[in-house]
Design a protein around this nucleic acid. Structure first.
Length: 468
RNA sequence: GGUCAGUUCGUCUAGUGGUUAGGACUCAAGGUUUUCAUCCUUGCAACAGGGGUUCGAUUCCCCUACUGACUACCA
């Protein structure tokens, strides 16, 4: 696998974009054999902007063999044509009315070029010929060459080819076996087939596979970079800051997605193994993925399912790894805690989390005393005699020494039974005082983690705060 | 407008000329839990429409509708 940078549009250069791509693949754990970021002894260049001389050769060769020609039409002139002729297309029907080496004398052409007048090299497409693209996903797609236009292959302005030429030349030179790209490329695939033919490389032509598009979660249409933050989910793998606008787009990584989960989710968008398995490691995917099982229709992002998948992956992580990550998060929140303590908490609450961030949501009460008490629970459970019972229970808890969750549980239950109290009511009030709401893991485990001293303290605060 | 492609539960999808059209996410109900979540069980829910071909079409063919991509000196 090769990482090649297709930066043939000098006007659209974005600094940092290349590094971003490298970083993304690194984060995902996808390695390349060759590429712009991997040193090579042969000195092969992997940025198309650095391979200018190579493409020029082939553009010249195409001119030489009459498969391409020079064109001098200015953007303004083309614009005029477009407005004059409905459905204007630079093809066999109009090329003889344009300013190019087919209509201009040889001398005139030479003259213009000597003067340094900007020009482009256009591909000469014969009308009325059926061109077949064999696609691993779409099958045979036949397009008549009459609907193709004389694509620009090379522009003198920046001495660079367009995607079409650069792509074919590089794929040939780099012996690329498979061209797998979005289906937005399907319409220009016949053009590429023709180009291979023109260059005499048809036998070495790579296999094509046009992937279905990723659609917006709401409505229809191709998922675009801007959809993400508008609808509150990431589209970028990593956070991206646009160097021109300064606009920041959130990334899957920053949202807490695990790279494996993202890869797994993406793989299932448009592909399935034909079995009921839906969790795959990267190496499993490498093993069983096949283009033949890719569907042709576009797929919408389902963030609920992506979240669920991330939950599954989080459950598979070791407590050790999760603790590392959670410790980082705690540090950000300016909370210091013993690693051993944090690890116990992680073990206790990991099943409630889909993202590392959720660990905080589910365990914040371990680190911070409740700032408020859930009103619904207070209303439903907190009775006049509650403070009295909680005070008694606090004493019972203190009497269990050394503290053991099981023993404490037994004794508290006994107290409730003796006084003929409502278990749910007392327990929830106790929980309310410690946690601030009716949620969280086993109460006595919480108490043992919190410590009896802190527990008693919280009970007192709750009694003082919650007054009816 | 033109060219090409697509259309199975809300979403991702499996599938076949004869199936109770399967799974997953979501949602709902129940169970577990003193709570919440997890978890378990059950349930809701689909072959775009119309013509053919056929004993029989979701499956094959045609048409229509809808959707999408492309239609740059961008990739």
């Amino acid at each position: 696998m090769i990482l090649r940078i297709e930066d043939t549009d000098s006007t659209r250069f974005v600094s940092g974009a290349e590094q971003y791509i490298v970083d993304t693949f690194q984060w995902l754990g996808i390695d390349f054999d060759e590429g712009v970021h991997i040193p090579n002894e042969q000195g092969v260049l992997y940025r198309q902007s650095e391979r200018k001389a190579i493409y020029k050769q082939y553009a010249d060769a195409l001119i030489e063999s009459g498969k391409a020609y020079y064109a001098f039409d200015t953007p303004e002139e083309l614009e005029v044509k477009r407005s004059e002729i409905p459905n204007f297309q630079y093809d066999a029907t109009v090329r003889m009315q344009m300013k190019n080496s087919l209509t201009l004398s040889e001398e005139e052409v030479k003259n213009r070029m000597d003067k340094g007048e900007p020009y482009v090299v256009r591909m000469l497409i014969q009308a009325g010929e059926d061109v077949t693209v064999s696609d691993l996903i779409c099958g045979e797609v036949v397009v008549n060459s009459s609907v193709l236009d004389d694509k620009v292959l090379w522009k003198s302005a920046d001495q660079l080819p367009t995607y079409h030429l650069a792509n074919i030349v590089d794929d040939y030179l780099m012996e690329i076996s498979h061209v797998i790209r979005g289906s937005e490329w399907l319409p220009s695939a016949p053009l590429h087939v023709l180009l291979y033919r023109y260059l005499g490389w048809e036998n070495e032509m790579p296999q094509f596979a046009h992937l279905p598009l990723l659609l917006k979660p709401e409505g229809n249409g191709k998922l675009s970079k801007r959809d993400g933050d508008r609808l509150g989910f990431p589209v970028f793998p990593l956070e991206w800051k646009d160097p021109h606008s300064g606009e920041i787009s959130t990334g899957f990584r920053e949202k807490g997605y695990f790279p494996q989960a993202l890869i797994n989710f993406l793989a299932l968008l448009g592909w399935n193994p034909g079995t009921e398995q839906e969790m795959f490691s990267l190496s499993e995917l490498v093993e069983i993925f096949s283009l033949e099982r890719v569907s042709k229709s576009g797929a919408k992002f389902d963030f609920e399912k992506a979240k669920w998948l991330n939950h599954k992956y989080l459950q598979m992580k070791s407590n050790d790894e999760l603790t590392d990550k959670f410790m980082d998060l705690l540090k950000e929140k300016q909370i210091s805690a013993e690693r051993l303590f944090v690890e116990k908490i992680v073990e206790l609450i990991k099943e409630r989390a889909s993202f590392i961030e959720d660990l905080w949501e589910a365990s914040a009460f371990f680190f911070l005393r409740p700032e408020s008490y859930d009103e619904g629970v207070v209303k439903k459970r907190w009775k006049e005699d509650t403070p009295l019972h909680l005070t008694e229970i606090a004493q019972i808890l203190q009497s269990v020494f050394p503290f053991q969750a099981k023993e404490a549980h037994t004794q508290v239950m006994k107290y409730i039974a003796d006084k003929e109290l409502n278990t749910g009511q007392i327990m929830n009030c106790l929980r309310l005082s410690l946690v601030g709401g009716a949620k969280g893991p086993d109460l006595f485990t919480i108490i043992s983690l919190l410590g009896v001293k802190e527990t008693v303290e919280r009970i007192k605060i709750a009694i003082d705060t919650i007054k009816k």
